[in-house]
Design a protein around this nucleic acid. Structure first.
Length: 464
DNA sequence: TCTGGGGTCCTAGGACCC
DNA sequence: TCTGGGGTCCTAGGACCC
């Protein structure tokens, strides 16, 4: 999808079409998630600090991401891809590989091009958004082709022409070559793909390590036989927060870690997993980042166990100077249910009792299955957040820029901005002309948050 | 207004085991 | 009895991707 988040916002908000739109974090430490093509002309791009984007494009519309909305569009697009082939490998909300051969719909350039053009038309009809298609004989080349195709295009790279096409290009177009590897290669005198292709595999391995060197050597020849993989299991679940101002207070840091642990476990459980390794992540005031991890004897999805493990890991971290970011993750995932865990803990406890006293086996099983006993209630009480401090933030969230609202008299609209007790709303719908702006009190009883409207009007999309 | 959040994969060293 | 050769697991960090 082309400039996906920004394009989705423009589709939802007629007044933003043709205008620079920047979607990203609006706090003091936010970065750009997606810039519309209009905003890119000012030099704004993904991962840029928001402050820098505002200097470059002061008149752009700045919006927070609405992931649930983007996900619903993404599902529509992925459904269309699923009609082409059973082998669809999503890379993110807005990008996927499709194995057309496995779908039996295309077996040469002409048929593939036809499928690609029909797909683009279907995506536009279904979502109101444009997508770009790259067609080639491998994932790597198809990806490069899709980059070339953007925005709103289709590029087919005929098998056999890969090397001449890639040769003169920068090493940076190869997947897996980022800033560090690019610089590494430049210092070794290699800047183009053909430089890499001419270098021996041994030299690349010596330079970049076994796996990276070997794979880059193959990619530089235009050779890539990685299959399209439809279902891959998640390997980890994590949550993290960057704070608007650095945290110094050790007690506050501790409670934030505990809240992150709760959120992480909620997501872990929602995904139907448990995990063995708990990871704490700390980014300090100077941006130096460290992780500390602990592997349990068995997988858990118990919030108390994860919270306590994260807390123990924090004990060993020096936070003097301040903390900018905290994160908690769980890896070593297993798809055990809670029942399985209890059964497993019982079994292990039984096993331990055979050779040990009852007292020591009880503490051992606690270490495995978690302190789901007496510490639970106290810890849950301690984790209740201080709501009074979050009052202002709650108002901000309720009227976040870009979010949909409904007014009893004026109908559907979206928040253009808010502050000093006022909220400014533009009243328009995806299919309407650009609408008018009105301002209300933040506690106006006639104004309420609402769900995003579909971008394409009407129910019958299937015939598209 | 200087740097998000969610992931994946790889490497390297040490412990441990046979 | 001056020092092997694998293999696996764990931890920490780094590069990369969207």
């Amino acid at each position: 999808m082309d400039a996906f988040f920004a394009a989705a916002e423009q589709a939802a908000k007629p007044s933003l079409r043709g205008k620079p739109v920047v979607v990203g974090g609006l706090g003091p430490r936010g970065v750009v998630a997606t810039a519309s093509y209009e905003a890119r002309r000012f030099g704004v791009h993904s991962a840029m600090p928001m402050g820098q984007a505002r200097r470059l494009a002061p008149n752009a519309a700045y919006l927070v991401p609405r992931f649930a909305f983007y996900r619903s569009i993404s599902e529509q697009v992925m459904e269309l891809l699923g009609r082409l082939s059973p082998l669809v490998e999503p890379l993110s909300l807005d990008e996927a590989f499709v194995d057309l051969e496995a779908g039996g719909l295309a077996d040469d350039g002409a048929s593939a091009r036809g499928v690609g053009e029909r797909l683009r038309a279907d995506i536009l009809a279904t979502t109101g958004l444009t997508g770009s298609v790259g067609l080639a004989g491998s994932k790597m080349i198809a990806k490069i082709a899709s980059e070339e195709a953007k925005p709103d295009g289709l590029v087919l790279i005929e098998p056999g022409t890969e090397r001449e096409l890639l040769g003169p290009r920068s090493v940076r177009i190869l997947p897996g070559v980022g800033p560090a590897t690019g610089e590494h290669l430049r210092r070794a005198g290699m800047t183009t793909v053909s430089d890499l292709a001419e270098a021996g595999e041994d030299e690349l391995v010596r330079l970049l390590g076994r796996a990276h060197g070997a794979s880059l050597h193959r990619m530089a020849q235009g050779y890539d036989d990685r299959p399209v993989v439809a279902e891959r299991d998640a390997k980890s679940v994590s949550v993290e927060d960057t704070f608007d101002v650095d945290l110094h207070d050790r007690v506050r840091i501790r409670t934030e870690v505990e809240r992150l642990a709760e959120r992480c476990v909620a997501r872990l459980r929602a995904s139907g997993h448990s995990g063995r390794t708990i990871v704490l992540k700390v980014r300090r005031y100077d941006f130096s980042t460290l992780t500390r991890s602990e592997t349990l004897r068995g997988p858990t999805d118990d919030p108390v166990v994860v919270r306590e493990a994260a807390g123990r890991l924090l004990e060993a971290v020096d936070t003097t100077g301040g903390v900018r970011l905290l994160g908690v993750g769980v890896s070593g995932l297993a798809d055990y249910t809670q029942e399985d865990l209890f059964a497993q803990a019982e079994a292990e406890a039984e096993g331990e009792r055979v050779g040990a006293s009852v007292a020591s086996s009880a503490s051992a099983s606690g270490a495995v299955a978690g302190g789901s006993g007496s510490t639970s209630a106290a810890a849950a009480g301690g984790a209740v957040p201080d709501e009074s401090a979050a009052g202002g933030a709650a108002v901000e969230r309720r009227w976040a820029p870009g979010h949909d609202v409904r007014h009893a008299v004026h109908g559907a609209g979206w928040v253009q901005g808010s502050g000093v007790g006022r909220v400014t709303v533009r009243f328009e719908e995806p299919w309407s002309a650009p609408g008018r702006v009105r301002t209300f009190s933040v506690d106006d009883p006639e104004l309420e948050p609402s769900e995003p409207l579909p971008l394409v009007r009407g129910e019958c999309r299937a015939g598209a």
